[in-house]
Design a protein around this nucleic acid. Structure first.
Length: 327
RNA sequence: ACGGGCGUAGCUCAAUUGGCAGAGCACCGGAUUCCAAAUCCGGCGGUUGGGGGUUCAAGUCCCUCCGCCCGUGCCA
C-alpha cells in the first residue's frame, strides 16, 4: 500500500500545520511505502522570490525530519527533483476537460475575489493528479478542502484509462485528516497563515514566549473564575498535555486566583516539553546539511524509480517514447 | 469589442500648477498590564502595475502593454 502526501513550502510550519496535518502524515509512515514530498512546484504559484522559495523548501525538509519523519521508513523528496512529474502532468493535461478545472474551488475563489488567475493556478489540480498517479498511490491523506482535487485525480485517471483502453493508473483514495483538534491562533480564530495568527513550531524560546503571551484574552482579573472551554490558551494547553494535567488546569481556571499570564506560562512550558526532542533533532540536522541533502537525494531516487515505471506505462499507452520501447 | 474609471507599503488610501513618496491599520521593539486589550514612545516596510518617451525634474504629462471595476454592444 502506497501512502503519498505533499506539503507546500509557503512558510515555516506552525502548530496548526502540525496538529492538523504533519503529525498525522508522519503517523502513516510505517505503511509499506510512504512517499512524502515538499511541493515546491505548487508553491511557485504563490512565491515569486527564488531565495525565499529555496529557503522555505530547505526549512520544510529540516522541519519534517526533526518532527519525526523517518527516512528509513518513508521517502522524503522535493517535488522539483522528480522531472517525471511535469511530464506526466502534460499527458494528463491533454485528457483534462476545461469544466473539470473551472469548478475547482482554489481557482473559483480567486476568480470570485477578482484576483487574476494564471494558468498555473488554473491547472494546478492536474499537477496534483500527476503527483499522485505517478507512484500508483493508494492512499492520500488530505484536509477536507483537498478532497475535491482527489476526485479530479480519479476522474483524470479514469478518463485516461478509458481513452487509451488501458489500466495505467491506480485510483487513489483520500484519507480525510482529523481536524477535530482545535488549534486556535493568537487571535482566538482558527490558526492559519492567512489570518496571520500563527505560532511557529521552531520559534526560538524568547520569541515563542512572546508569541504565546500575545494570545488574545478577555480582561478578567486574576481573582475571577474563568471558563476553560472558551479560552484559546486552554485549548492550546490541551494539545500538549494529558487528561490529568488538563483537569488540573481547568480546576484552577474555575476556582479563580490564577491569571492568564500563568496559564500562558504553562502552555509555553508544555509546548517546549512536547517539542523538545524535535528541537534537539533540529539543531543536529542544521549542523549536518549534507545528511539532509542525502536524504532528499535518496528520496528523489526512490520516487523516480517508481515514477519512471508508471510514466513508461503512460507513455506507451498514448503512443510516445518509441526510442525507449523499441517497437 | 468600444467608451469611461482605476492601479502608490502586507491592507485602506493621501501627495496643490510636474518640485525631497506620506498617513492610518497591520507587523516588529520598548513602556504599561498577572498575560492580553486600550494607551504612549520608537522601528521596519516602496523597481508608485510593466516597458518606452517628453522634461533640469514624472506618482503626476504623452505612447504602449498588462490587470481590475462600471456601462454599452457583439456573439448564442
Amino acid at each position: 500500500m502506497r501512502v503519498l502526501s505533499g506539503i507546500q513550502p509557503t512558510g515555516r510550519f506552525h502548530w496548526g500545520n502540525y496538529f492538523g496535518a504533519i503529525q498525522q502524515y508522519i503517523a502513516l509512515q510505517n505503511n509499506d511505502q510512504a512517499f512524502y514530498f515538499i511541493a515546491d512546484l505548487h508553491a511557485l504559484t504563490t512565491i515569486r522570490d527564488p531565495e525565499v522559495l529555496k529557503q522555505f523548501t530547505w526549512e520544510a525538509a529540516v522541519d519534517l525530519l526533526a518532527l519525526g519523519l523517518d527516512p528509513k521508513q518513508a521517502a522524503l523528496f522535493v517535488q522539483s527533483d522528480v522531472p517525471e512529474i511535469p511530464e506526466l502532468t502534460w499527458l494528463l493535461m491533454t485528457v483534462t476537460q476545461m469544466h473539470l478545472l473551472e469548478k475547482c474551488h482554489a481557482y473559483k475563489d480567486k476568480k470570485a475575489k477578482g484576483i487574476s488567475a494564471d494558468a498555473g493556478l488554473f491547472t494546478y489540480p492536474v499537477l496534483m493528479a500527476a503527483d499522485i498517479l505517478l507512484y500508483d498511490s493508494d492512499l492520500v491523506p488530505v484536509g477536507t478542502d483537498q478532497v475535491q482535487h482527489i476526485e479530479v485525480t480519479r476522474d483524470l485517471a479514469q478518463r485516461f484509462n478509458h481513452l487509451y483502453k488501458t489500466e495505467v493508473f491506480v485510483f487513489p483514495k483520500p484519507r480525510v485528516l482529523d481536524d477535530s483538534a482545535k488549534v486556535p491562533g493568537t487571535d482566538g480564530e482558527k490558526m492559519s497563515k492567512s489570518y496571520n495568527n500563527t505560532i511557529d513550531i521552531f520559534l526560538p524560546e524568547k520569541k515563542l514566549k512572546k508569541k504565546i503571551n500575545s494570545i488574545k484574552t478577555d480582561s478578567k482579573s486574576v481573582e475571577d473564575s474563568k471558563d476553560p472551554e472558551t479560552c484559546p490558551v486552554f485549548a492550546l494547553y490541551r494539545l500538549f498535555t494529558n487528561e490529568d494535567q488538563q483537569k488540573e488546569l481547568a480546576e484552577k481556571y474555575r476556582a479563580g486566583g490564577m491569571g492568564y499570564g500563568d496559564a500562558k506560562k504553562q502552555v509555553f512550558e508544555a509546548a517546549m516539553e512536547y517539542f523538545s526532542e524535535a528541537r534537539q533533532r533540529r539543531v543536529q540536522l542544521e549542523a549536518d546539511p549534507d545528511y539532509v541533502r542525502d536524504v532528499l537525494k535518496q528520496g528523489a531516487l526512490a520516487a523516480r524509480e517508481k515514477g519512471k515505471e508508471v510514466l513508461d506505462r503512460a507513455r506507451s499507452a498514448c503512443g510516445i517514447g518509441h526510442l525507449k520501447s523499441g517497437s
